[in-house]
Design a protein around this nucleic acid. Sequence first.
DNA 1: ATTTATTATATCAAATTTGATATATAATTC
DNA 2: GAATTATATATCAAATTTGATATAATAAAT
Lengths: 105, 105
Amino acid sequence: MKRVKDDLDRTMKQVLKENPRLQEGLDKAEQAWDIAFQIYDLRKKAGLTQTQLAKLVHTKQSNIARIETADYTGYTLKTLEKVTKALKAKLEIKIVPSQSQTINP
Amino acid sequence: MKRVKDDLDRTMKQVLKENPRLQEGLDKAEQAWDIAFQIYDLRKKAGLTQTQLAKLVHTKQSNIARIETADYTGYTLKTLEKVTKALKAKLEIKIVPSQSQTINP
DNA sequence: ATTTATTATATCAAATTTGATATATAATTC
DNA sequence: GAATTATATATCAAATTTGATATAATAAAT
């Protein structure tokens, strides 16, 4: 049951890896999935294994696995920050209003 | 003791409100503070009081206050998402690598 | 095909955040 | 300046995430 989702995830990761432009389209899709992928991708590019990254973050491999697969909406910024820092990346969080959000004069 | 920090926060909010370009400079500063401010700012622009926003988020005023003032690193994405959605904004999370992060061939 | 390495899943206690209530402080309004 | 509104702080139980260990599943390598 969950296996199915994961298989999809993995093939999607592959597809995206080969067609990087598709990534943009995902912005509207689930944040959760996107973050998971971003981390996965960075880790791969850094040539790190989950266990190695885990060590950098001072945690265990299983926790990295959780981050990369699970739906991530509920997790804390603190965690995200630790991971991205270990990957020598910067966490950018922007809250962008959909429409001009000023009060009418 | 904490009052001092808050007073600073408030005046900073003012300063930033008047010199929006300064905002950029803050990107390197604390994420936490920045998020707090972004929410505060959006709420104000939407002309909402903390209590009103709280109602939209199905929570209480004190929790919104906490979000806007407290150091926010530890909180969950879920919460951030609920709040930004209520403010009709979109939460953008990007993990940007500091240097080109590819493996050497 | 067997090993070996890598990643995924389950589970559970400990730590942390969240929601809620109550109350204090600050700012507006009259 | 008193009253009303808005925001900040304290506290605590309940819910959730985190870290950890163990183990299963998958992939890679030999």
